Simulated assay, not measured.
Amino acid sequence: MTAHTARTVGAGTRNLAGPTDDLPWIEDAGKVAPKDARILSRLFFDRLQLLEEGTPDHQYARNTLIEMNLSLVRFAAGRFRNRGSGDMDDIVQVGTVGLIKAIDRFDLSREVEFTSFAVPYIVGEIKRFFRDTSWAVHVPRRLQELRVDIAKAKEALAVGLDRDPTVQELAEELGITEEEVTEGIIAANGYTAGSLDMPADTAEAGRLNPPGRTLADALGAPDPGMETVENLHTLAPLLVHLDARERRIIDMRFGQEMTQSQIGAELGISQMHVSRLLSRILRKLRSGMLVEE
């Protein structure tokens, strides 16, 4: 399908030049029919991989792809409508994060439909949302399951013993160590939590805490740099496995903040070639970081 034909496809499209001559201008991408969205998505993905990140053209293409494919998020979110927790708007918002990840990682050379590629990302993000938000604090899956086993064993033993079982008795019933039972009991405390708006309760509350001071007032603020540090620690060993030219390209692009055109001029290659090299390098690094996770 040519770009001219694309300009006439789908609701909300107009026969106007968009930010780039090779892409149609879509006035309301969210109203494009799913069938037309599949056709237009291939056109936008084909162009996106040639555009330089951070440019208006790249931003337009990426944002349009997100809006055109929001129907995939709504479709996936509908499967979780009766889960009993989580507002539907929150579920759609979380699913949109999965859609964005899929768009950033999709490669036309895979020769698969974007819908088939994107839905697992969307559903996975929504499932992760339900898993993490059903607990007051994040607890590893192993301990979440152990909490259920301990509760069942405690109830069964209490009937025969006419009292609450001890840690040792629970361990024998479940065939695990007493340390594991204790760990599971402690983890169970994370299922519910007290309000941070409760008054701070300390032995010296009158002296240390002014009237009206809550637990939230005593908490430190999150450090936005911590996530960056963690990502850098994960990324560092992966960079060692890149060859010299790949490391140089990464340094020029993200260390020196050079544009793809500037990198191309430095290396004596075209901007398009730089774009392809960057895409390949970043895919390699992303795969390595996902394995680490």
Rank of each mutant, 00 (worst) to 15 (best):
Val9Asp: 04
Val9Arg: 12
Gly10Val: 06
Gly10Ile: 08
Ala11Thr: 15
Ala11Cys: 10
Gly12Asn: 07
Asn15Pro: 09
Gly18Pro: 06
Gly18Ile: 07
Gly18Leu: 03
Asp21Ser: 14
Leu23Lys: 06
Trp25Asp: 09
Glu27Thr: 11
Asp28Ser: 14
Ala29Ser: 10
Ala29Tyr: 09
Gly30Asp: 14
Gly30Asn: 12
Gly30Ile: 10
Lys31Gln: 13
Val32Met: 01
Arg38Met: 11
Ile39His: 11
Ile39Lys: 14
Ser41Cys: 01
Arg42His: 12
Leu43Ser: 05
Leu43Asn: 02
Phe44Thr: 00
Leu48Asp: 02
Leu51Glu: 13
Glu53Asn: 08
Thr64Arg: 05
Leu65Ser: 06
Asn69Trp: 07
Leu70Met: 14
Val73Phe: 07
Arg74Asn: 11
Arg74Leu: 05
Gly78Val: 01
Arg79Cys: 08
Arg81Met: 08
Gly84Ser: 05
Gly84Asp: 05
Ser85Met: 13
Asp87Ala: 14
Asp87Trp: 08
Asp89Val: 03
Asp90Ala: 12
Asp90Met: 06
Ile91Trp: 01
Gly95Phe: 06
Gly95Met: 04
Thr96Ala: 10
Thr96Ser: 13
Lys101Asn: 13
Ala102Tyr: 08
Ala102Gly: 06
Asp104Phe: 08
Arg105Asn: 14
Phe106Gly: 01
Asp107His: 04
Leu108Ser: 05
Arg110Lys: 07
Arg110Phe: 10
Val112Trp: 03
Phe114Gly: 00
Thr115His: 11
Ser116Met: 04
Ser116Leu: 06
Ala118Glu: 02
Tyr121Asp: 04
Val123Thr: 15
Gly124Asn: 03
Glu125Val: 02
Lys127Thr: 11
Lys127Phe: 00
Arg128Thr: 09
Trp135Thr: 04
Leu143Met: 03
Leu157Ser: 00
Leu157Phe: 01
Asp164Ile: 08
Asp164Glu: 15
Pro165Ala: 04
Val167Tyr: 05
Val167Ala: 11
Gln168Trp: 06
Glu169Leu: 06
Glu169Phe: 06
Leu170Val: 01
Gly175Cys: 01
Glu178Arg: 12
Glu178Ala: 09
Glu179Ser: 11
Ile185Cys: 05
Ile186Gly: 03
Ala187Pro: 04
Ala188Cys: 04
Gly190Leu: 11
Asp201Ala: 15
Thr202Gly: 13
Thr202His: 11
Glu204Gly: 09
Leu208Thr: 10
Gly212Val: 07
Leu215Ser: 09
Ala216Thr: 09
Gly220Ala: 13
Asp223His: 07
Asp223Arg: 12
Pro224Asn: 10
Pro224Arg: 12
Gly225Ile: 09
Val229Trp: 14
Asn231Gln: 12
Leu232Gly: 07
Leu235Asp: 07
Pro237Trp: 02
Leu239Phe: 05
Val240Lys: 12
Val240Arg: 13
Leu242Phe: 03
Ala244Trp: 05
Arg245Trp: 05
Glu246Asn: 04
Arg247Ser: 00
Arg247Lys: 09
Ile249Trp: 00
Met252Trp: 09
Gly255Ala: 00
Gln262Arg: 08
Glu266Pro: 01
Leu267Cys: 07
Gln271Ser: 14
His273Arg: 14
Val274Cys: 07
Val274Lys: 08
Ser275Gln: 14
Arg276Lys: 15
Ser279Phe: 10
Arg280Met: 07
Ile281Gln: 07
Arg286Trp: 12
Arg286His: 10
Gly288Ala: 07
Leu290Lys: 08
Glu292Gly: 12
Glu292Arg: 15
Glu293Gly: 00
